[in-house]
Amino acid sequence: MRRLAAGLLALIVLISCAAVYAASGGESLITQTYLEETYVPGVLEQAQARVEEKTQSIYQSASSVLEGRHSAYLNGGNSALTDCRFKEGDVLTLPAGSGVLLLAGGASVSTGTLVDVTAGTALSAGAALTARHRGLAAEGGGTVTVTSDTAVLSLEGTYTTASGSGVDYNALADALRDMGLFQGTGTAYGSGYDLEVAPTRLVGLVMFLRLIGEEGAALSSTAANPFVDTPAWCDRYVAYAYEQGYTQGIGPGLDGRLYFGANTNITAGEYVTFLLRALGYTDSGTSPDFTWSTALDRAVELGVLTSAERTALNSGSFLRAQVVYLSYFALSAPLKDGSGILLDKTAASSGVDKSQLQAVMDGVAVSRLS
């Protein structure tokens, strides 16, 4: 529309100039330089401004209609933003005027149109939602599909959901939380789980200590912390783990001091190394059961992982969602000495009644990748 209007105006200008030239008996009253560098650009700029003004007017009109419908829905529905956790493949159906805000993870419009109020644009089917951008379902409504393993969406108005076929990492996180084995990061939305964030070595160590039932012992430890790069909140964890020989950190730095690598992201292989240690396997000594570089393959051989899980860990991102998944299912893995499963060790070492932990697990209906 903008190009068409500009083109027509330019054509009119040229015709007018030609007429002036002809009327003067062939002697132009306006120089070609003035036409090309001043007059025509000025007219085109005015034309573009008019087109943009008209487009903005149309957008504001449509936006006002949606805002009005949005307010009407809120009067009879949910008047405040409510953040909800979703899994891959979940579909949200939004009638016109209902609002959505992506807080974490990924999601895209699957049908209909969503107005990105923050950017002032329209999102059609296939377009991805932008984090922290407020969207309103346009006339006729639309659907939004979660495209990441997990996502947090804040919703307003009325909506319905259809469950997808993705792994329900959220349910596993809920279960571990109820068992006292998983805590959030303090993030103000999505229960603070931050399942969409890459885990650090500190996260891996803390989860390891919880799974072997020694978090309480770590928190009451008086051992010295030899590492210079650990924040105050995890001081007791790393001090205890070093004293027990569970970690040696990443070695000394150029300054000769010992570093743990607190903010370094942990890999799937490194976390599975923690899990195998929790089960009683060793990666040190003269006859190690595995090495950190072969942890995933060895875990499959030992029945701790399935082949499908190994493939998924090798090919996808390793996030807190995967930490939750591995930790939950490791609880059912057999200990190396044959004395039971990891859940038995967790309960015995932490002093928690195993039946209480088992009751939580019995209420979870999440299948493993196979």
Score class of each variant (00 low, 15 high):
357 L>K: 13
274 F>I: 02
204 G>E: 08
154 S>F: 01
212 I>R: 07
352 V>A: 07
330 A>Y: 01
320 R>L: 11
205 L>T: 03
248 Q>Y: 05
151 A>R: 06
178 D>V: 00
365 A>R: 15
96 A>C: 06
201 R>L: 12
299 A>L: 04
279 L>V: 03
80 A>H: 10
32 Q>G: 06
209 L>D: 04
35 L>A: 04
307 S>K: 13
11 L>K: 11
335 L>R: 12
226 P>V: 00
206 V>W: 03
285 G>Q: 04
51 V>R: 01
323 V>T: 12
266 I>C: 07
144 V>R: 00
365 A>M: 13
105 G>E: 00
77 G>E: 02
279 L>H: 00
218 A>L: 08
48 Q>N: 13
155 L>D: 07
250 I>S: 09
323 V>R: 04
299 A>N: 04
50 R>A: 15
21 Y>C: 06
105 G>S: 03
324 V>T: 13
254 L>G: 15
248 Q>S: 09
207 M>T: 15
114 L>Y: 05
325 Y>C: 09
35 L>N: 01
327 S>E: 02
90 D>W: 03
341 I>K: 14
273 T>F: 00
28 S>C: 05
3 R>K: 14
58 I>A: 08
73 Y>I: 11
272 V>C: 02
231 P>M: 08
255 D>K: 07
276 L>I: 00
365 A>Y: 13
165 S>L: 04
32 Q>M: 08
203 V>W: 14
104 A>R: 12
22 A>R: 11
69 R>M: 11
171 A>H: 04
314 N>M: 15
104 A>D: 11
182 F>P: 02
141 G>W: 11
363 G>F: 05
233 W>L: 05
197 V>P: 04
112 G>Q: 09
44 L>Y: 05
155 L>G: 06
190 G>Y: 04
85 R>L: 13
302 L>K: 05
254 L>V: 14
248 Q>K: 14
42 G>V: 04
95 P>R: 06
231 P>L: 05
334 P>F: 07
147 T>A: 12
174 D>F: 01
5 A>I: 10
232 A>D: 07
63 S>G: 01
80 A>S: 08
294 T>G: 02
165 S>Q: 12
283 D>S: 03
153 L>K: 06
358 Q>D: 15
163 S>C: 03
292 W>I: 14
44 L>I: 15
299 A>W: 02
90 D>I: 01
23 A>D: 10
154 S>C: 06
289 D>N: 01
4 L>S: 10
358 Q>S: 15
90 D>V: 03
93 T>E: 06
52 E>Y: 13
112 G>T: 12
139 E>R: 10
308 A>V: 10
92 L>T: 03
368 R>W: 03
242 Y>A: 13
325 Y>E: 10
82 T>A: 13
232 A>E: 08
13 V>S: 10
266 I>L: 07
62 A>I: 09
284 S>N: 08
80 A>D: 12
350 S>K: 03
122 A>S: 13
152 V>F: 03
289 D>C: 02
348 A>Y: 12
93 T>C: 00
145 T>K: 13
79 S>G: 04
50 R>M: 08
87 K>D: 05
189 Y>H: 06
138 A>V: 06
351 G>Y: 15
182 F>H: 09
35 L>H: 07
124 S>K: 14
215 E>M: 14
342 L>P: 08
161 T>E: 10
